[in-house]
C-alpha cells in the first residue's frame, strides 16, 4: 500500500468535510443577510465585523441549549435519527470533481476524492437513503405533528426522486459515461444546460423538493405542523437537522453545477488547474443564491398540489425529455 496515497485521501476527505461544515455555518449567514436585503432589512450585523461571527455565536448558543428527550419517544432511534440525517448529506460530495490534476512536491494530485465509473448512480443511491433520518425522527418523536412531517417528507422525497433520477439521465446519455469526471470533460466547449434545458429545470425543481426547501418545505410547514419532523428536537440534535438541510443545499448546488453548468470548467482552467475549485465554488454560490431567492419569493405549495405537480407534470416531462434526448442522439449518431 502506498502510504502517501492514503494520506492524500484522508487530507482530501477532511477538506471536503470541513468545507461542508463551515459552508453550512456561513450559508446560514449568507441566507439571513440575502433574505434581509430582499425584505428591505439589514440582517444580523452585530457579532463581529458586519456580522461575520454570527454563525459562531449561533453555534455556541446551540451548544448551551438544554437537550430534551420526550418521555414517550423511542429513545435509541430518537438519538440516532439526527446522525442518520447528516451522514448522507456529508458523503454525497465525495464523487464531485473539483478540478483536474495539480502538482504538489512533484506529485500529481487529482482534485477529487474518487472518480468511480458509477458516479451518478452513487448520487442517486445516497439521495435515496437520505429520507431515513427525517422519517425516523418524525416517528421516534411520538408526536403527531412530527409524525405528519416525517410521512409527508417520505412521500415527497420518493415522488421527486423519480423526476430527479430521470433528469440525470440526459447528461449521462450525452456524455456516454456515468463518471462525473467524464461528464465534466464532455462539457468542454458547451455546457449541458444548453443541450438539456428541460432536464436542467426538472433537476433543479426536483432537487429543491428533495432537500425540503421552500416552496416545497411541506415537511416542516410551521403554520400546520409547528416544525414538522424536528418539532421535538433541541440543542445540538436540532443543529444536526439544520446542518443536514444546509449541507444538502450545498450538495445539490454542487451536483447541479457539475452536471449542467460545466463543473469546474471555466476560462484558462486547462492552463491553470488550480482555478477549477474557484470556478466550481462560484457556480455553487450562484445556485445557492437562487435557492435563497426562491425562498424569499415563492409561497409554500399546498400538499396535494405538490404531489400532483410531481407525478402529473414533472415525471411525464422528465420521461419525455429522456425519450427525446435518446432519439436525437441516435439520429445524429452521437
Amino acid at each position: 500500500m502506498d502510504y502517501l496515497l492514503i494520506l492524500e485521501w484522508i487530507v482530501k476527505a477532511v477538506v471536503i468535510l470541513l468545507f461542508c461544515v463551515t459552508g453550512f455555518a456561513y450559508l446560514t449567514f449568507y441566507e439571513r443577510r440575502a433574505l434581509a436585503r430582499m425584505q428591505v432589512r439589514i440582517g444580523p450585523n452585530r457579532a463581529g465585523p458586519s456580522g461575520w461571527f454570527q454563525p459562531v455565536a449561533d453555534g455556541i448558543k446551540l451548544i448551551f441549549k438544554e437537550e430534551l428527550i420526550p418521555g414517550q419517544a423511542y429513545k435509541p432511534v430518537f438519538i440516532l435519527a439526527p446522525m442518520i440525517t447528516v451522514f448522507p448529506a456529508l458523503v454525497i460530495l465525495a464523487v464531485i470533481p473539483w478540478g483536474a490534476y495539480i502538482t504538489v512536491f512533484g506529485r500529481q494530485i487529482p482534485l477529487y476524492l474518487t472518480d468511480i465509473n458509477v458516479g451518478v448512480l452513487y448520487l442517486i443511491a445516497i439521495a435515496s437513503i437520505s429520507v431515513y433520518g427525517i422519517v425516523l425522527a418524525g416517528w421516534s418523536s411520538n408526536n403527531k405533528y412530527a409524525m405528519m412531517g416525517g410521512l409527508r417528507s417520505s412521500a415527497q422525497m420518493i415522488s421527486y426522486e423519480l423526476a430527479l433520477g430521470l433528469a440525470l439521465i440526459g447528461p449521462i446519455l450525452i456524455a456516454g459515461t456515468m463518471s462525473l469526471m467524464g461528464i465534466v470533460e464532455a462539457q468542454d466547449p458547451i455546457w449541458f444546460i444548453v443541450y438539456q434545458p428541460i432536464g436542467a429545470i426538472i433537476f433543479f425543481v426536483a432537487s429543491v423538493a428533495e432537500v425540503n426547501r421552500a416552496p416545497f418545505d411541506m415537511p416542516e410547514a410551521e403554520q400546520e405542523l409547528t416544525a414538522g419532523y424536528h418539532a421535538e428536537y433541541s440543542g445540538m440534535k436540532f443543529a444536526l437537522f439544520f446542518m443536514a438541510e444546509y449541507v444538502k443545499m450545498i450538495a445539490i448546488s454542487a451536483i447541479g453545477a457539475t452536471l449542467f453548468l460545466g463543473g469546474f470548467r471555466g476560462p484558462f482552467v486547462d492552463q491553470v488547474p488550480i482555478l477549477g475549485p474557484f470556478y466550481l465554488f462560484f457556480k455553487i454560490m450562484v445556485l445557492l443564491f437562487v435557492l435563497i431567492w426562491l425562498r424569499a419569493t415563492l409561497p409554500r405549495l399546498r400538499y396535494d398540489r405538490l404531489m400532483a405537480f410531481g407525478w402529473k407534470i414533472l415525471l411525464p416531462l422528465a420521461l419525455a425529455n429522456v425519450f427525446l434526448t435518446a432519439v436525437v442522439l441516435v439520429l445524429i449518431g452521437g
Partner: peptide
C-alpha cells in the same frame, strides 16, 4: 443499484406503510 432500489425505495415504502 442494491442501495437505490432496496434500501432507498422499497424499504422507505415499507416504513411509510408501517408508520
Amino acid at each position: 443499484v442494491q442501495v437505490t432500489v432496496y434500501a432507498g425505495a422499497i424499504m422507505v415504502l415499507f416504513l411509510f406503510i408501517i408508520m
